[in-house]
Deep mutational scan, measured.
Amino acid sequence: TEDEKKIQELLKRANGDVSKAEKLAQSQGNEELARRLREYANK
């Protein structure tokens, strides 16, 4: 999905570090994506 692409892109930029990727999403003002990242990471 589009969200998964965004999540994978963020994870790439954060070198696979979920908490960093989450902070990136939040810094972009994207709380929804940050929440999805957390769920994605907890799979």
Rank of each mutant, 00 (worst) to 15 (best):
T1Y: 13
T1H: 12
T1F: 13
T1P: 12
T1W: 14
T1M: 12
T1C: 15
T1Q: 11
T1K: 11
E2W: 14
E2T: 10
E2F: 13
E2C: 14
E2D: 13
E2M: 11
E2Y: 13
E2V: 10
E2Q: 10
D3C: 15
D3L: 15
D3R: 06
D3K: 05
D3S: 08
D3Q: 09
D3A: 10
D3I: 15
D3P: 06
D3W: 15
D3G: 06
D3F: 15
D3N: 09
E4L: 14
E4I: 14
E4V: 11
E4S: 08
E4C: 15
E4D: 12
E4Q: 09
E4F: 14
E4G: 06
E4H: 09
E4K: 07
K5G: 09
K5L: 12
K5D: 11
K5R: 13
K5S: 10
K5N: 08
K5V: 11
K5A: 12
K5P: 06
K6T: 12
K6V: 13
K6M: 15
K6G: 07
K6D: 14
K6Q: 14
K6W: 14
K6F: 13
K6C: 14
K6S: 10
K6Y: 13
I7P: 01
I7Y: 05
I7A: 04
I7F: 09
I7Q: 02
I7G: 01
I7T: 02
I7D: 01
Q8S: 07
Q8I: 14
Q8H: 10
Q8M: 14
Q8Y: 12
Q8F: 13
Q8W: 15
E9A: 09
E9G: 05
E9M: 09
E9W: 07
E9Q: 08
E9L: 08
E9P: 00
E9I: 07
E9Y: 05
E9V: 05
L10R: 01
L10F: 12
L10E: 01
L10C: 07
L10Q: 01
L10M: 07
L10I: 08
L10S: 02
L10G: 00
L10N: 00
L11I: 10
L11M: 06
L11Q: 00
L11D: 00
L11S: 00
L11Y: 02
L11V: 04
K12L: 11
K12Q: 10
K12N: 09
K12D: 08
K12S: 09
K12H: 09
K12P: 00
K12F: 10
K12G: 05
K12T: 08
R13V: 09
R13T: 07
R13Y: 09
R13W: 15
R13L: 14
R13C: 14
R13P: 00
R13N: 07
R13G: 05
A14Q: 03
A14S: 08
A14T: 12
A14C: 15
A14N: 03
A14V: 10
A14W: 05
A14D: 00
N15L: 06
N15V: 03
N15K: 10
N15H: 11
N15E: 07
N15Y: 07
N15W: 07
N15G: 14
N15A: 07
N15R: 10
N15Q: 09
G16N: 06
G16S: 03
G16C: 14
G16H: 05
G16L: 03
G16K: 02
G16A: 02
G16Y: 14
D17W: 05
D17V: 05
D17F: 04
D17Y: 03
D17T: 02
D17S: 06
D17Q: 03
D17N: 08
D17L: 04
V18M: 06
V18G: 03
V18F: 14
V18K: 03
V18W: 15
V18H: 05
V18R: 04
V18A: 07
V18N: 02
V18Y: 14
V18E: 02
S19H: 13
S19Q: 12
S19K: 13
S19M: 12
S19T: 11
S19E: 13
S19P: 04
K20L: 15
K20Q: 10
K20R: 11
K20S: 06
K20W: 10
K20T: 09
K20E: 10
K20C: 15
K20G: 05
K20P: 01
K20Y: 12
A21D: 00
A21Y: 01
A21P: 00
A21G: 02
A21K: 00
A21Q: 01
A21R: 01
A21M: 03
A21W: 02
A21N: 00
A21T: 00
E22C: 15
E22T: 09
E22P: 01
E22Y: 13
E22H: 07
E22K: 03
E22N: 03
E22A: 15
E22M: 15
E22F: 11
E22R: 05
E22D: 02
K23F: 10
K23V: 08
K23W: 12
K23L: 11
K23H: 08
K23E: 12
K23Y: 09
K23Q: 13
K23G: 06
L24E: 07
L24N: 03
L24K: 03
L24P: 01
L24H: 04
L24C: 06
L24G: 01
L24I: 11
A25H: 01
A25G: 01
A25E: 01
A25R: 02
A25N: 00
A25S: 02
A25K: 01
A25V: 03
A25W: 02
Q26I: 15
Q26S: 07
Q26T: 08
Q26K: 12
Q26G: 04
Q26V: 13
Q26M: 15
Q26D: 04
Q26F: 12
Q26R: 15
Q26E: 09
Q26P: 00
S27V: 08
S27K: 10
S27F: 09
S27H: 08
S27T: 08
S27R: 09
S27E: 15
S27M: 14
S27Q: 14
Q28L: 14
Q28K: 04
Q28T: 10
Q28M: 15
Q28Y: 10
Q28D: 13
Q28H: 07
Q28S: 10
Q28A: 11
Q28E: 15
Q28R: 05
G29Y: 08
G29F: 06
G29Q: 04
G29V: 03
G29H: 05
G29N: 05
G29R: 03
G29A: 03
N30L: 15
N30D: 15
N30V: 03
N30Y: 13
N30H: 09
N30G: 15
N30I: 03
N30F: 13
N30A: 06
N30E: 11
N30M: 14
E31G: 07
E31T: 11
E31I: 12
E31V: 10
E31A: 11
E31H: 14
E31N: 09
E32N: 07
E32K: 06
E32G: 07
E32P: 04
E32M: 08
E32T: 07
E32H: 08
E32V: 06
L33Y: 03
L33M: 06
L33Q: 01
L33N: 01
L33T: 02
L33G: 00
L33W: 05
L33C: 06
A34C: 07
A34K: 04
A34N: 01
A34F: 04
A34G: 04
A34I: 08
A34Q: 03
A34L: 10
A34P: 00
A34E: 02
A34T: 03
A34H: 01
A34D: 00
R35F: 08
R35D: 05
R35V: 07
R35I: 08
R35E: 06
R35H: 06
R35C: 09
R36G: 02
R36Q: 11
R36H: 06
R36F: 06
R36W: 07
R36L: 15
R36E: 04
R36S: 05
R36V: 06
R36Y: 07
R36A: 11
R36D: 02
L37Q: 00
L37C: 03
L37E: 00
L37D: 00
L37G: 00
L37M: 06
R38F: 03
R38N: 03
R38C: 07
R38S: 03
R38M: 04
R38A: 05
R38L: 05
R38P: 00
R38D: 00
E39S: 05
E39M: 06
E39F: 05
E39W: 06
E39P: 00
E39L: 06
E39V: 05
Y40I: 07
Y40C: 06
Y40Q: 04
Y40R: 05
Y40W: 13
Y40L: 11
Y40D: 01
Y40M: 11
Y40N: 02
Y40F: 08
Y40P: 00
A41V: 12
A41K: 08
A41D: 03
A41P: 02
A41S: 07
A41M: 14
A41Y: 13
A41T: 07
N42E: 11
N42I: 11
N42C: 14
N42D: 09
N42Q: 13
N42K: 14
N42W: 09
N42T: 12
N42A: 14
N42P: 04
N42V: 10
N42H: 08
N42M: 13
K43H: 09
K43F: 11
K43R: 12
K43G: 08
K43N: 10
K43Q: 12
K43T: 12
K43P: 06
K43V: 09
